[in-house]
Amino acid sequence: MSDPVPSTTDGSGQVASARPPARGRSPRLSDRGLAVAFISPAMLLLLAMSVFPLLWALYLSFTDYSATRGGPANFIGFGNYTAILTSAQVHTRALTTVIYVVGAVGLQTVLGFGIAYLISRRTRGRGVLTTLFLVPMMLSPVVVGLFWRFMLDAQFGVVNSMLGSLGLGQVEWLTRQRTALLSLIVVDTWQWTPFIMLIALAGLTAVPKYLYEAASIDRASEWFKFRTITLPLVWPLLLIAVMFRAIEAFRLFDLVYILTNGGPGVSTETLSFHIYKVAFLGFNTGTASAYGILMVLVVIVLTQLYLRYLNKLKEG
């Protein structure tokens, strides 16, 4: 007759007595059930806050629905998509957005990497400097926009005041076509250069020191070391930072809203700002949904191409 209490043998050959189930655990709840119970709140939240709105927006994008006018959402096929892709208004905003993204991200990359490179060569005060450089990134874009708006004011702004004390003339930073877009790029650069700097600094810190030591023994110049050791090793990480920044810059809204409100005229209206107007001035919900979906698609396609390039770079 076997022992009614099952026993197990551990690896050492000793017999371990069977333990009762953990106290408080329902005998009906399997491990799988427990896993589902733990995951389901997060999954439900994700479904409610992310997946459902996205699918809902996708559905609305094929209709002429207006949130304020109510009434049925009539199916109009690709009408919204065709109208958006052929609209001169959208093309203008797309060009503005591209100029902004290229200008801002390009400037941030050069400055961010430059600052990171300089900081990485310091041995003292590195932590303090890094922390100080990170401060702008921690501020709300609305706050940043508001104080830059005051600083760039043509009449009483501190920037023009400084230019005046240097004997230079007043500049209409926010009310002229070229300077307004330039101002947006400068403000965004001020705020987000630290992000590139931080990632570049992580990459620079990870470069093995023995490579530099070996290069030094071979009497390699600083430029040679930078070109053949530093840049190739940091480049993939830097490209990831550029990708994150480009995605962020592509959907810029807050700075435009606070600093220029899209002006003068519509010359600093980005795609996101235009969507806001379509969605909330005329409450053309169907069009705005299609516009948003198209922006998401553009980001996904460009990101995929970019990631493929990054993978190739890694393989190479």
């Binding site: 207006s66 109208a83 609209s87 107007k277 053309n284």
Partner: peptide, 8 residues
Amino acid sequence: NRKGGGGL
């Protein structure tokens, strides 16, 4: 009465 693209 336009079908699609209202608000652009």
